[in-house]
């Protein structure tokens, strides 16, 4: 694997080809916030909190650091007035769903996000997909998945699989950026809900 040199926040950073901007930055001690990223999982790019300014041979654009591959000569800025403003709005929107998430509140104080800016709709889940993807990609059990779409999208355990697998695992619980109890609650719901209606 070749080594490439890029610039992150005016610092020269060396990274291995195939790495993402996020990994290169973290390797150099530059912190970029993430919510839907996990080292063992493929980039999912849904939370957008890791947005950075990327300048590739004169073309500047905003991109998600967790998915952008490093390249020779790339110029990355991880903080700017614009980026901070974007992150602030994202946090405010997410806080409407999970107002008490420690992780969100930590980032909120960093970016000056107002927890009460938007009307609260505490669904707790922010659809980051960490639990769902961890179960599928790492554990290969597929005990939990998403259901529905748009604003009604939520996680849901498959009772038959959950009954077999979850008690001995529960590794997805601590991954949740909003609350340890979120997945736990939905799991219990799946295991105790009445069966499907009978045929008419």
């Amino acid at each position: 694997m070749g080594i490439v040199t890029l610039t992150i926040d005016n610092r020269e950073v060396k990274a291995e080809e195939g790495m993402t901007v996020l990994e290169a930055a973290r390797g150099a001690g530059i912190e970029i916030p993430t919510l839907c990223w996990h080292e063992k999982l493929k980039p999912y790019t849904v939370c957008r909190i890791c947005v950075v300014d990327v300048d590739a041979r004169g073309w500047t654009s905003l991109d998600t650091a967790c998915s952008r591959p490093v390249k020779e000569g790339l110029v990355v800025r991880t903080r700017s007035a614009k980026i901070d403003r974007i992150r602030k709005t994202i946090l405010e929107l997410l806080l409407a769903h999970a107002p008490d998430s420690p992780k969100l509140r930590e980032y909120a104080s960093e970016y000056g996000a107002d927890r009460d800016r938007f009307e609260k709709d505490p669904s707790f889940c922010i659809d980051c997909g960490l639990c769902v993807r961890y179960c599928a990609e790492v554990k290969k059990k597929n005990a939990v998945g998403f259901v529905d779409r748009g604003i009604r999208r939520e996680i849901c355990f498959v009772p038959e699989v959950a009954l077999r697998e979850c008690n001995g695992c529960k590794e997805c619980f601590p991954l949740c950026p909003t609350s340890y109890l979120q997945a736990a609650f939905v799991l219990v719901q799946a295991l105790t809900a009445p069966a499907q209606p009978e045929k008419p």
Binding site: V132, C135, A136, N142, A143, V144, G145, F146, V147, D148, R149, C156, V158, E160, V161
Partner: peptide
Amino acid sequence: VPMSRIQHIATF
């Protein structure tokens, strides 16, 4: 195809 995926598609 895992049930979790079918569930997702059938509700989507």
